[in-house]
């Protein structure tokens, strides 16, 4: 079967309409998980099928599409998803955050601030922030409905009692506009503050779990914390070895058999742009 046998951006228009309705509902109730009839996609569940369906539903032929995984445009699954939409939608693609109109991401928010008119699509493995406290969907839906988030606060408190810190480093739970506790997807907590007041539309798709949720532009998103243990966005305490940035999230890379390591920006576009502008880190060639 040729690519022409499929509709623009793979999904048929009925399915896109169903997804768009879920997105609109999600935007109307920020942070609320909207059930949607997720389709089997030609890539496995858990590999971004939720994000792919959301992207397919929002993409238009005029869009410029960027895909990142772990902040990088060149990781294998990002390459695979980008080429999927090149084939099925023929949309223009880019690696530049500023140029993109739709950005699909796994595990990161780009370093460069987003603008109005941009859409950030998150791939979400487990949309339910309460899932690891209560495995039953029937229960967690009730807890959200009743705004019963005590269990989550107890968990965070127990972390502090045992470790002196909240022992959650990624997928750090947030509260949206003072109402729904939401899973930000497995982004490092370093990225959490970028969600709040963001000018872009943020859409979250969980394919296997059949949920979509959303943050309209300029939504207030607060990371859960306590007055005496305020939330802290953390990162490796180094500058980037390639571009010297000291305010970007870093990957740690083991560079030799002796365990020597260097730290580099996880956002490859951000790092490349800085290097082109002449910034140099200590490990740059």
């Amino acid at each position: 079967m040729t690519e022409n046998a499929y509709n623009f951006a793979y999904l048929d228009e009925q399915t896109k309409r169903m997804i768009r309705r879920a997105i609109l509902k999600g935007l109307a109730i920020p942070g609320y998980q909207v059930p949607f009839a997720s389709r089997e996609m030609p890539m496995p569940y858990g590999w971004g099928t939720g994000g792919v369906q959301v992207s397919a539903a929002v993409l238009t032929p005029e869009d410029r599409f960027k895909v990142i995984d772990q902040g990088a445009d060149d990781t294998t699954n990002a390459v695979s998803i980008r080429s999927f939409f090149q084939r099925t939608a023929g949309v223009a693609t880019t690696t530049h955050t500023q140029e993109a109109t739709v950005i699909q991401t796994r595990h990161r928010i780009p370093e460069e601030p987003l603008n109005e008119g941009q859409i950030l699509v998150y791939q979400v493995p487990i949309p339910e922030p309460l899932r690891f406290l209560e495995p039953r969907e029937t229960e967690t839906r009730k807890m959200h409905a009743l705004e019963e988030y005590g269990l989550m606060h107890v968990k965070l408190y127990e972390d502090i009692a045992r470790h002196g810190h909240i022992a959650t480093a990624y997928a750090y739970p947030v509260k949206v506009e003072g109402r729904y506790v939401m899973d930000p997807s497995p982004i490092p907590k370093f990225d959490n503050p970028k969600m709040s007041g963001n000018a872009a539309i943020q859409l979250f798709g969980a394919g296997r779990e059949q949920r979509i949720y959303a943050l309209p532009p300029y939504t207030q998103v607060v990371s859960l914390d306590f007055e005496d243990h305020p939330f802290e966005a953390s990162k490796a305490d180094h500058p980037c070895g390639l571009c010297g940035a000291d305010d970007s999230y870093l990957d740690e890379v083991i560079v030799d058999d002796a365990g020597g390591r260097m730290f580099v920006c996880s956002d490859t576009d951000f790092c490349d742009a800085r290097q082109s502008a002449g910034f140099k880190g200590k490990d740059a060639a």
């Binding site: 294998t76 493995p125 810190h165 740690e252 996880s266």
Partner: peptide, 25 residues
Amino acid sequence: TGFLEHIKLPHYVDFQSELELVRKL
């Protein structure tokens, strides 16, 4: 199978944040 096998995908960002946390603790 999709969700099980997705743990083969890169997770260095999450893992990095865990590394920082464990070192700190």
